[in-house]
Amino acid sequence: MNAETGQPLLTVEHLSMRFGGLFAVNDLSFAANRREITAIIGPNGAGKTTVFNCLTGFYKPTVGRLTLSPPSGARFLLERIDGFRIAKEAGVARTFQNIRLFAGMSVLENLMVAQHNRLMRASVYSLAGLLGLAGYRAAERRALDLARHWLDRMGLLAQADQTAGSLPYGLQRRLEIARAMCTEPAMLCLDEPAAGLNPRESQELSRLLLDIRGEFGIGILLIEHDMSVVMQISDHLVVLDHGALIAQGPPARVSNDPAVIRAYLGTEEDEALPPEVAGDLVAVPHSIPSAGQPPC
């Protein structure tokens, strides 16, 4: 895996995000490669979600440069693009820590909304759509096929016509990933996708993410507290504490880093723990924040 390191997809340089007197992210620099899973970990309140919000245009960074270089050859300076354009033009898709589905719409509709921009182009200001022209109908068929493909993959085919809000928690998480993938992104940002899943579901998720990485060759940024998932699938680990980078590198090395262990366990113990033990210690269940907070 690590032998074949891809080219950098995302470079974050000196990113800082300040809220009043609080530096939620402080002078953070790292790079995430194509065809790799880069995990961002750190204790609660370390600033992980804030990094995502800066990357996806929900926050304007106080300082910093965020460069996305997708395989198409284009270069996007994400801190200069506003809001929805990052998803539309640069191809950055994300999920949310507290799931944000279109709860009253059907599962299939959620995936159709994700293909909005492609379908809008085909519907020519809705005129071709209103008249039911062949070009639009073909585009709609292709969109349905893509949605069907992801439903099949996520095991959601049987629930396609149900409301998204009525799905069990694990399926909602998967639907949110499917929705992000339906935008055909260059980079996928997942905010705690394993939160609230049982061990079997976490295993399935790990396999799914590895499949996505292998098949689509996109870069995945992963925020995750479940260390068994992180250790198993990530190629590169970025550790934050109080908004600052404290370690980065391959998972095996980082998990033995004394600074990381200190940040997690709050002890002075310098003795390196074997990764499985460290993982178990860190994978304490944590509460899922309630809805209604700023996008996180």
């Binding site: 929805f84 898709a93 709860a103 509709e109 909005h116 519907s123 209103l130």
Partner: peptide, 21 residues
């Protein structure tokens, strides 16, 4: 049509809509 679905999606969750471009 996509525009109509986007209206309903916007009613459901504007933040999610922005994240989908």
């Amino acid at each position: 049509l996509p525009i109509g679905r986007a209206w309903e999606a916007l009613r459901e969750d504007e933040t999610a809509c922005r994240s989908l471009g």
